[in-house]
Simulated assay, not measured.
Amino acid sequence: MGYETQYVHYQALTTNAEVLLNKLTSKTSNNIYRFTPDKSLTHWLVAEEDQQSGSVHFRLYLAESDTWITPLSHIESSQTDASWSARRVPIQYQASDGMPLFGYLTLPNGYVASEVPLVVFPHGGPWNRSHGSYNRISQFMANRGYAVFEPNFRGSTGMGQTYMTSAQRDFGNGRVQQDIIDGVDYLLENGVGRADRLAIVGHSFGGFSAINALAFTPDKFSVAFAAAAPNNMSDTIRHYKSAIPAVFLPMRLPRFSALMVDITNRQDVTHLYEKSPDKHWQKIDKPLYMWAGAQDDRVAIEDVREFALRLQADGKAISLVSDAREGHSPKSTLAKDGYLYLLERALFTHLHGRMEKQVTPSLTRYFDKFMTIDTNSVKN
């Protein structure tokens, strides 16, 4: 039986399984690994990830002959020297209502923890989780001189049914968002980060949390980066319902109704809207940087643009990149570069970390083509 807490664990349920498990784990040295058997349980693929470099090494265990082979060694990338990589550690903290929560902290090398800017990086989903494995965006931000906090707020998966359902549909300006803020306060109180240099960064539901933070805790954060970000979860579920294949609806809509909002119930929808940044957008007074894909089947590009235009019309500091070719996440190399440059520029401008200032001609053309709103002067 395999399961995951901060890291990966396996538990043998029989005596024979224990013997086998001991053989499999004898070759693992990291905290992140996976065992995958064939149907006969005689061939076991062991995939082991180096937490610091993200490199994955594969071995095949042949149980009948008790031998190990490395069939993919000729095409595996060589293990990268991970000395440059920032340290990533699990942390546990207590929410303001007493519930124990956990997440991960990535600390930049060569800096004093209490002196670096702190970036909060909530995961998407929200029924997902941050893992102990390598995270390239966290490492990217740490490389630029920021401490990165990834909270597994209640509603996150992997910690059991009670942990996931304890959000009790309290999204927007509610319990879930407070879990994120409680984690920030815990780190500040324990000598990580600077209270005057805080940012929040997120994609999908994480982007929703980032906009929430500007709307409901406007004095706390200096800047937010929100990608593929809803501003009203009810509208997003309606769009998702119309965009996904009908075969998935009987499974996914009841999940939304049970865990977040019933979009067929007007009172339910109104309740969530009252706690959403869509209702409280005028409270936003800090810079917001947004990235969105026009082909997104989860978050409607029309909703993202309308929200950004509303902020622009009111004189807010808002930048929006609307990539006509991309979906929920950037896929092309150029789109990924544009995404990371926008993130890097937002953090550099307002938290004053490091930045690679040289921009390639292709990246310049990317922003000329897809930068829809730019009151933050990203292109200058």
Rank of each mutant, 00 (worst) to 15 (best):
I181S: 13
K379G: 05
D196W: 00
M260D: 05
T165W: 07
P90I: 04
P126Y: 02
K27A: 13
D374L: 04
H352K: 15
S166D: 12
V247M: 13
A63P: 00
Y61L: 03
F102R: 14
N212R: 06
D179T: 13
G191S: 09
F121M: 07
Q161G: 14
K39S: 15
F307S: 08
K279N: 03
R34Q: 04
A313N: 15
E189H: 06
N231G: 09
Q282M: 03
A317L: 08
A246L: 14
D297Y: 06
M164P: 00
Q312A: 01
T270W: 11
A213E: 04
R238D: 15
E18Y: 06
H43G: 13
S55F: 05
D179C: 04
E356V: 07
E326R: 07
G202T: 03
N109S: 15
Y7T: 03
E48M: 04
P151R: 15
S234M: 13
V119N: 07
I91T: 05
S156H: 09
H43T: 10
S276W: 01
T364P: 01
P108K: 14
H239K: 11
R298I: 10
K220I: 12
N143Q: 10
L41D: 11
V176T: 05
F58E: 15
L118S: 09
N190L: 06
H131E: 13
S55R: 14
I91P: 01
F216W: 05
S362G: 07
P37W: 05
E274W: 10
G98E: 12
S222M: 15
V223A: 00
Q79I: 07
E344H: 10
I373M: 02
Q92F: 05
P287S: 01
D323V: 07
D179V: 04
M233Y: 11
R169A: 06
S114W: 13
S329R: 12
L334Y: 02
Y61M: 07
S78M: 11
V201G: 00
D268H: 07
N190M: 08
G132W: 01
R154K: 11
W84K: 14
N128H: 06
Q267C: 00
H203K: 04
E64L: 15
T70M: 11
R154D: 03
L20F: 07
L72S: 03
N376A: 10
E48C: 03
F102P: 13
T80R: 08
V120K: 10
D185I: 02
K279C: 02
A346P: 06
G206V: 03
W68D: 04
S73F: 13
S133P: 00
D50I: 07
D314C: 02
V192I: 13
Q267S: 11
W291D: 06
G125K: 09
V192A: 01
A324G: 03
S362R: 11
M99K: 15
Y33I: 00
M233E: 08
N143E: 11
Q178D: 11
I69W: 02
S234L: 08
G132S: 08
K286H: 05
R144Y: 06
V378I: 14
V359Y: 02
A243F: 06
L272M: 12
V359P: 10
N109Q: 11
T165N: 08
P126E: 02
A346F: 08
L118K: 09
P218Y: 12
F370Q: 06
K336H: 04
R305F: 12
I137E: 01
T157Y: 10
Y3K: 03
E150K: 13
W68P: 02
F205V: 00
D38I: 11
